[in-house]
């Protein structure tokens, strides 16, 4: 194609957009995260229309469009619905050094899955449908990483 680069430099303007944000968790998100931080208890919300229990808790059922006003305590273990093992590090974004896993976990008592990290697993043995349990962080600060990761439940097949 063009050989203009033989005679000219390729000039670029380097830039980095770094905008500070403060995202509010809102009433529902705050109640959920406080329970996780202070008691180590996962909470979901139940839709009065379809009775589905949402975890992560939702304020409104997207289907029935009802307010999910009822809170439900959930188990801290659940089922692995899908997963991946990340092999390529992203310098800023990877939450752990590679290789690490993450998956979709449906907690006991919930009708929907949520995303979290996987740890202490053997990648040759891990499979969809495995029982996994939460391992909490030593220092809990009121965000989703108060759960360090999920690991396979030992002795359960």
């Amino acid at each position: 194609m063009e050989d203009w680069r033989k005679d000219q430099e390729v000039l670029v303007m380097e830039g980095r957009i770094k905008v500070p944000y403060r995202w509010f968790a809102g009433e529902v998100g705050t109640r959920y995260l406080e329970s996780l931080r202070d008691k180590g208890v996962f909470l979901g919300t139940r839709c009065p229309g379809c009775e589905k229990v949402y975890h992560i808790p939702r304020r409104h059922c997207p289907e029935c469009f009802e307010e999910c006003s009822q809170w439900v305590e959930l188990g801290s273990s659940g089922t692995l619905e899908s997963y991946t093992i990340v092999r390529r590090q992203h310098p800023q974004l990877s939450p752990l050094p590679v290789p690490y896993g993450y998956g979709i976990i449906r907690l006991e008592g919930a009708d929907t899955g949520f995303l979290h990290l996987l740890g202490e697993f053997d990648d040759k043995e891990l499979k969809v449908g495995d029982s996994v349990e939460a391992v909490f962080s030593d220092k809990r600060e009121g965000n989703i990483l108060d759960v360090k990761f999920f690991r396979p439940v030992k002795g359960v097949e």
């Binding site: 944000y21 995202w23 968790a25 998100g29 992560i56 619905e81 899908s82 997963y83 991946t84 990340v86 390529r88 992203h90 974004l93 990877s94 939450p95 993450y102 998956g103 979709i104 949520f114 995303l115 979290h116 990290l117 499979k127 969809v128 449908g129 965000n143 989703i144 990483l145």
Partner: peptide
């Protein structure tokens, strides 16, 4: 989502990988 996805999730490839695993299963 900044609360529930970003702390865990690292871009398009690994999101698609979750789909691939579920499909194979």
């Amino acid at each position: 989502d900044p609360f529930w996805d970003r702390p865990i999730f690292a871009g398009a490839v690994a999101g698609l990988a979750l789909e691939a695993t579920a499909y194979m299963h």
